[in-house]
Design a protein around this nucleic acid. Sequence first.
DNA 1: GGGGACATGTAACGGGTTACATGATTTT
DNA 2: AAAATCATGTAACCCGTTACATGTCCCC
Lengths: 191, 191
Amino acid sequence: MALRHAVLAALLDEELSGYQVTKAFAAGVANFWHALPQQVYAELAKLEKEGLVAGREVVQEGRPNKRLFRVTGEGLGELESFASAAAKPAFLREDLLVQVQAADHLDADVLIERLTERYAFAEAKAALFEEQLRRMRGGLDEAEFLLRGASRVGPYLTCRRGRDFERANRDWCRDVMEVLRARRVQVREGD
Amino acid sequence: MALRHAVLAALLDEELSGYQVTKAFAAGVANFWHALPQQVYAELAKLEKEGLVAGREVVQEGRPNKRLFRVTGEGLGELESFASAAAKPAFLREDLLVQVQAADHLDADVLIERLTERYAFAEAKAALFEEQLRRMRGGLDEAEFLLRGASRVGPYLTCRRGRDFERANRDWCRDVMEVLRARRVQVREGD
DNA sequence: GGGGACATGTAACGGGTTACATGATTTT
DNA sequence: AAAATCATGTAACCCGTTACATGTCCCC
C-alpha cells in the first residue's frame, strides 16, 4: 500500500495535475516509484475522498481543463506515520535474472541479445537520471548542493539511487556478456 | 508471468521438492527471484498439469513423504521461448525510496532509523550472498571459475547481481544518512 | 514439553497490469 | 494528414500477499 504514499510524496513540493503526476511516474524516468496513469488517477480520487489531498479545478484555454492537487495537513500526517513504520525491503524481480539463471541450459546468442537490449536501456536511463541530477544541482558541485543547497534533497537522493541502480544493471549486463562470450570460445577450443 | 519460469530455472540443475524450491526462494537469500511457499506449490501443480515439469513421489522414513520435480523437454522449450522474447526491465519499488523522497518534509531522526534498519538488512544479505558465491567458486578465484569452472555459471552470475544490489543499497543508506545528519547540524548553526 | 525444521496446501483480498475509451490541440 | 501531447478515466484479469490449516519428527 505504498502507491498512495508515493503519490503524496510526488505532490509535496508542488501542486500537480493527475497528468503531471503520471508523467513524474512515467516508465522511463520514475526515480522513486513506478505507476501507470490509471493507478495514479484512481489513487488521487481515493486520496481526495479521504481528505489527504485537495484538488482544485483550473480552467484552461486551448487545452482540456485540469485539476491541480496539493497535500493537506492530514496527508502529511499520513506520510509521517508511513515513515514511522518499518519499510519493507524490495527484491530484485527481473525477467533477465531468471534468463541468466538458466544460462547454462540456453543458447548464449539469444541471451546476449537480451543482455544487449537491457544494457542499452540501462545506459539510456542512467543518462536521463544523470541529466536530471545535473539540473537539480544547478551550478553547485554535489557535496555543496547536498550540504548547503536551498532546494529539496529528497528527490535528488532518490534520483541518485535510480542512476546507480541502472549503472549497476549496465555493468552487470556487460560482465555477463563477457563471461558468456569467453565460455563460448572455451567450448570451441575444447572440441 | 515469470514466476513459472523462475521455478523452471530453479529446477534445471537438480531435482527438488516443493519445499526445497521454497527454500531456494526464501525471502532472505533469493538470488534471482522471490516467491512465497504458497505460490511455489501452486505453480508446481500448474506446471505439472501442463507437462512442463514431472514429479515423482519419494517415500521417506522419519519425515513426511515428498514429491521431487524435474524439468521436462517441454519445460526447457518453454524456458527457451521465454528467453527469446524481450525481457521487461524492472523498476525500483522500495518503501524507503518513497520515504526519502519526502525527506525534506519529514523528521530526520525517524528517517535515520529507517535507513539504519535497511543498512543492516542490506549488509546482512550481501554477506549471505558473498558466502554463497564463495562456496560456488570453491577454491578457484572468480575469473578462473567463470572462464573454466565446470559448474554452472548462471546461478553464480545472478547471485553476484544480488550481492551488488544489496551493497548498493547499503552504500546509499550510508550516504543518505550522512547528508541528513550534516544538514541537521547545518540547520542548528543557522539558528 | 516446546520450538523449529520438514512437507504441503486452501481461501480471501488487494494491488498491478492489460485492454479499452474519449476527445481536443499542437507538432511534424 | 498523421502522430504526439494534454487530460482523464472504466473494466477485467492475473499475480502477489496475508491469513489460515494440518501433521510428523528431531533437537534442546
